[in-house]
Design a binder for these strands. Sequence first.
DNA 1: AATTAGCACTCTGTATGTTTAAGTGCTAAT
DNA 2: ATTAGCACTTAAACATACAGAGTGCTAATT
Lengths: 367, 367
Amino acid sequence: MHLLQIYMKTLEEKAEKFNYNDLNERSREILLGIIEGYFGTASPVGSKFIAESSKLNLSSASIRNIMASLEEAGYIYQPHFSAGRIPTAKGYKFYVDSLMKTEKISIKEKEDIEIRLTSANRDLNGILNQVSILLSDLSHYAGVVLAPDMSEANLLHIEFIRIKEKNILAIIVFANGVTENKSFYITKDIKQNELTRYSNKLNEIIEKKNCSLDGLKEIIIEEMHSDKENFYSILNMGIFSSIGNVSGYWDYKHYDNCLYVGPEGDLIEEPEFSNNEQIKFLIKTISDKKNIIKLLGHTKNSKTKQIFIGSEDEWSEISGLSLITAPYISEINMIRGSIGIIGPLRMNYSHVIPIIDFVSEFLSGII
Amino acid sequence: MHLLQIYMKTLEEKAEKFNYNDLNERSREILLGIIEGYFGTASPVGSKFIAESSKLNLSSASIRNIMASLEEAGYIYQPHFSAGRIPTAKGYKFYVDSLMKTEKISIKEKEDIEIRLTSANRDLNGILNQVSILLSDLSHYAGVVLAPDMSEANLLHIEFIRIKEKNILAIIVFANGVTENKSFYITKDIKQNELTRYSNKLNEIIEKKNCSLDGLKEIIIEEMHSDKENFYSILNMGIFSSIGNVSGYWDYKHYDNCLYVGPEGDLIEEPEFSNNEQIKFLIKTISDKKNIIKLLGHTKNSKTKQIFIGSEDEWSEISGLSLITAPYISEINMIRGSIGIIGPLRMNYSHVIPIIDFVSEFLSGII
DNA sequence: AATTAGCACTCTGTATGTTTAAGTGCTAAT
DNA sequence: ATTAGCACTTAAACATACAGAGTGCTAATT
């Protein structure tokens, strides 16, 4: 045997014993045991517990050896020298990606979701708010919902109403029934019957071209060149400066008003939040909204479910928390938003993920 | 001197020394000292501190005597035998009613309020949400805003739009520019031009009678008797069952969607919330919304500012918290709601009260 | 008669030491 | 390769001592 061959063999063996990319069977089993044990008790899991509870008939001493390597590779850590082990963010991530078997969502839960999202005549606001509460109730963590971006949603109808002198209300109805209204001021008063003529003209375009608000704007800007009545320039100045904005970004909801947060009463009872600093961080994170909106924004544009596990290295803005998100998309109506559940790192992923999946799918169907 | 007279004199003296309804000057001064001392340090105030800081040149021993009577009367208490004194809910109440000198709201704060509530074209939702954030920012506690009851608000316009077969969207515009929309299903499809005829008919009534939604409903029920086209009965069945409800209560906002809560990040930093149970109670109270809505509802209907100081005896639903509320009312538009600030009992009342006063007045003016 | 100095007493919070239980890493034996 | 055994580490629980803050009461003073 060549020296090189021997060296290669050693490397292989080392890799077999401990593959950093994809743990071997035994390590996986033990990591799974630690994570599930920690889910149950919320306190560090020791080698003895694993030795007794796992299928591998190994002594605690052997388990300890493997645990030492798992720790070296960053999947678990010890809060102090002689304590048991706790999964790290990397450990949870590996669990979610490779170890977890997701539960099926129960029929009772399915029915609950269907009933609560279809009963009553609700506008979009009402539905999204209801979804945030529903997610909190089902998961026992905190549900969050990002309102959709309507910039590309198909229009159905636009109506102008004169509220008082020089003050006009624009009502925009999208094809899916969502309405948006903006009041704005103009420099010269316009009578209601003239306004109605304007609305009718716009509605003709909408019906003919089947366009979005962005699309409508483009058409209007184009028509402005050959505009004899000065009609489009009034629209452009007065109306579009108020219902869209110049840079082309449609602020369907004000930044501070586009996140629905469900009740967090159950979440704060989790043992990780018996620590005062932890609970304050949680409340500030949720109440500040900014970072959650940012993460939900990622998912909105990504088309697939995402799991943000907050650590010091990655997603530090939610360090110590987990956020599971999924988009809701209506291809027909061209609207798109996202939902999520915030909980501790020690979240019941296998239960929560199917809930998020089902709710996002169901929501996509009804909006 | 008669025995009776002597007895009366004794009683009077006792009353002078300690009048349960209206403390004598010295007691008031000491109670004020305790409350203001407690505002500053958030820890029990002892007799020595008062002796040194107050204008009354008394020894700590004398102060102790008076403190004992104040305690007997329920204005202050000791957390344990040899601690200083802390104001009770009754103490705070007395302070707010009789001792407090409210500060004037600063020009800078006034300007801040005006700028933040008038800038940008905002719908009512946006304004109320902004008010909740504004109240949080100014007070450093948590601002809350109850959405108005629109049942008596004057109508401006109603519009029906056919979304798809048998599915109609009703847009209701109130005189102050608030819009509400409800989608509903009917048993027989109606074409858009017929719907427009219906809207026009309703708008004629609205313009002529200048009525509220409740008023419109009554008119329609009356007209149903002499209804040849069967028009009003369709309206009554389809539309009013969805936009109002049978019992006459107009659910402008769903119960769970009518409270705006500002950021609570500053509030949880108050020393009373370093206790874990306290912070959980706070978060649950705010996140549950029910009790806060109830208290804000009181104020909405009462026309005057109210201060709820939560103790075990009174307003126990916010025990350990204070809620200062004021209504906002637009007489012209007949709409009415309320705003509030939630904080610890040890709240900076003299600063917060003028803020609430000014914001509620300003808001009344712009809605 | 009102006020106060003085003092014994009570309670909290902090520091300190002790013990127990849990869990580890390492070594030598299997 | 695995494990029994053991010395070691740490947190948590408990007991003890002690300083500091503040009280209520009594006797002395104004």
